[in-house]
Amino acid sequence: MLRRVADSVFWTNRYLERAENVSRFVDVNQSLSLGGSPQWSPLIYASGDESLFHQLQGGEFTAERVLDFLLFDKRNPNSILSCLVKARENARAIREVLSVPIWEAINRFYLRVRDAARDPDEILQLPADFLERVRRSSHEVIGVMEATMSHDEAWHFARIGRMLERADKTSRILDVKYFVLLSGRSSISSALDVVQWTALLESTSALHMYRRRHGRIAPASVAEFLLLDGHFPRAVRFAIAEAEISLHAVTGRPLGTNLDPVEEKFAKLHGELSTVKIDSIIQRGLHEFIDELQCGLNVLDAAIYQRFFEIQPLAEAASDQQ
């Protein structure tokens, strides 16, 4: 397929996944603040857009400002609205490779968010329904893609985009929450902490699956589940494994044969996540580990871009043969 098209398929799905994750962040915080301890600043820290927030919304982290920034502020490139605008724009640029139902699902998703942004007051007061719809719309796109699009190269690039974004966001959520929850404490001490950890798991829709796997809430187990679980679809290791499978579907070589530098880089990160133990991560420092993980993800992004999307070098190499 065309490099430009592969690039747009990849980003369409990244932006949709990003919108879904913003909704998750916000929703869990919203439900926590109902319990009496509103914390809006960590949301902004987690998004990594702190200075932009201050620039656009001023210094104070009020519920309304933070919500507006994350949901509807067009000037914030990572707001749900911005993500949908970009997802749709990318999808529109490659409409011919998407099935008609996929395009329509993305377009409807966009229209819903755009219409909400035009009349935001009620949603900024009570965002839960809206956030729920965002997640459902995102899942609708995934479902329609699964069911109506050939599982060909384009589909695999879509999945790589989604999975890399998911790995990134899950690790960020964990990083921020972990930092906040464990600051000044060494273990779970109160009922409130259980509520907080539960909320963290819920923000990644992980609570039920976590309970089935680990039972009681313990910080190390939560970190292990979100980073290293091989079966939970929002866990970092699972996401990387899925992306790796799709990468090999694209290159046409079986898993394990890492002839390409991109394949090698995926294999390396996946290998690390499969062998490392949570105890040693915590001993070394969870934050430091996640920092390294984020660097690793950036390496994968850059490798994918160079190998499959970048046009200039290939165009030059091709013209040189003249």
Partner: peptide, 21 residues
């Protein structure tokens, strides 16, 4: 068929070629 932009196409050895993955 593929929908292409000018930047997706190059001329090489007297042929028009499109840049794919």
């Amino acid at each position: 068929i593929e929908l292409v932009c000018g930047s997706d196409l190059v001329v090489v050895d007297g042929q028009v070629r499109m840049l794919t993955t």
